[in-house]
Amino acid sequence: MKNTNSQKIRLGLFVIIGTTLFVLAVYLIGQKQNMFQNTFTISAYFQNVNGLQKGNNVRYSGINIGTVKNIVMTNDSTIKVDMNIEEGIIAHIKKNAIATIGSDGLVGNMIVNIVPGKGTDEVIADGDIIASYSKIGADDILSTLSVSSENAAILTSDLIKITDAMIKGKGTLAVLLNDTIMAKELRQSVTNLKVASRDASNTISEINQIITSLKTNDNTVLGMLLNDSVSGQNLKVIVSNLEASSKQIQNVIANIDTTIVDFNSGDGAYNYIVNDTTLVNSLQSTLKNINEGTDKFNQNMEALKHNFLIRGYFRKLEKQKEKEERKKQQ
């Protein structure tokens, strides 16, 4: 063979370059999967992982910082997700960080997003469990919100009917006011309504605040939610509905108030007393509705408030409930 030496050199180069390329590829892939880096593990519990798989990326404020190491069912409704996190990032994650599950793009892989919690807290350590936030829960809240705003709307229209009736037929009102129990009920309803509407307007303004803050800062849980799904739009619509209905409620209350005040200072109110029983009956049921409606409304608002503002409230509540149940069982 001529040129055997140059052939050997070329063969050597061929093999060396080929293997180098391969090793490089393996290294790069391994690096992406954190194979060659020191990692620590943190976990979070979820009710639903939406198809998250081993090896999916974990992001902190949008940066890839690790991968999902393991997914195990711990009981019939809780799933524990273990995540490998790069050691270098440890100093930046606090114990109050929150994990959510989202998708990477419209049809992308599932990912775990870790977002910083509000305020300051200790730096996270290996094996820590951080709070989680289920997207499903958020959807639930959005639906209750819309239900309560519907309730509010019904309530309002009922009240409008009453006040209309009051203004038109003052005789009915006289009957109504003669009946002291009913009058008490009405007053109670009105105060309830007042409280509810105050709460509602507080909540609404707080929600509005959050929504505006989202436009500038995407790092909150809601930011994740609103930016990667249509639910953001829904929320805005519901909030504005709520706002509108609470205004209406306030108007109604003001109307009733003035009517009652007028009546109390009453000049010749008794003139208008008639025996219209049907009207009285319908008014009674309306008031019942009002009571129920305001109760529900309050409940919803409470839930909503706690969910958005004090994260993990649900979890606490659940734990409390669980504890109580356990106690009961014991």
């Binding site: 391969f22 590829a25 393996v26 892939i29 992406k32 090896g55």
Partner: peptide
């Protein structure tokens, strides 16, 4: 490219 690749791609191929 390397983001999307996994050992599960490269090992069977090799």
């Amino acid at each position: 490219v390397f983001d999307s690749l996994e050992f599960g791609d490269i090992v069977p191929a090799t």
